[in-house]
Computed example of a mutant assay.
Amino acid sequence: MDRQFCRRFHVRRAAIEAWLKLLAANHPGSRDFTLNYDNLSQLPEDGNVFD
């Protein structure tokens, strides 16, 4: 797969969790949002989502 394309899918689970919690607490559109930790745990801690 193209390197440039793969770099776009590099994630840090802790950063995503922090942003989701921030949005859930502060955005009116996420009033009924519940963070699914089972789905979150499927993301890499610090890596590419394709791995």
Rank of each mutant, 00 (worst) to 15 (best):
R7T: 00
E17Y: 09
N36W: 01
L20C: 11
A24N: 03
N48I: 01
H10Y: 11
F50S: 02
F9N: 03
F50A: 00
D46I: 15
Q42C: 07
L23K: 01
E17A: 14
R12Q: 12
F50D: 00
V49Y: 13
N36R: 06
D32G: 07
Q42S: 09
H10C: 08
L20D: 03
C6P: 00
R31Q: 08
M1D: 06
N39F: 07
D38N: 12
A14H: 13
Q4G: 03
D51G: 07
P44D: 09
L23W: 02
R7S: 00
L20Q: 06
D38Q: 11
E17K: 15
G47C: 11
R3Q: 01
P28W: 04
K21E: 08
G29T: 12
D51Q: 09
K21T: 10
H27G: 06
T34A: 08
N36M: 02
F5H: 05
I16R: 07
E17F: 10
D46F: 15
V11E: 00
L23M: 10
Q4T: 08
R12L: 08
N36G: 08
G29E: 12
I16G: 05
D38K: 12
Q42E: 09
A25D: 05
V49N: 15
C6K: 02
H10F: 10
L40K: 15
R13Q: 12
W19F: 13
L35T: 04
H10V: 10
T34Y: 02
M1P: 06
H27W: 03
G29Y: 12
R31F: 06
N36S: 11
H27Y: 05
N48R: 03
L20R: 04
D32R: 02
L43S: 10
R13Y: 10
N36T: 06
R8M: 13
R7E: 02
M1W: 02
K21N: 09
H27D: 09
P28E: 09
G29N: 14
E45P: 08
N26P: 03
G47H: 11
V49C: 15
N39T: 08
H10W: 07
D32S: 07
C6Q: 01
L23C: 07
P28D: 07
N39W: 08
A14D: 15
Q4R: 09
R31I: 08
R3V: 00
F9H: 05
R8I: 12
Q4M: 03
F33G: 01
R8K: 14
H10E: 07
Y37E: 13
R8Q: 14
A25R: 04
N36D: 13
R12A: 07
R8V: 11
Y37I: 13
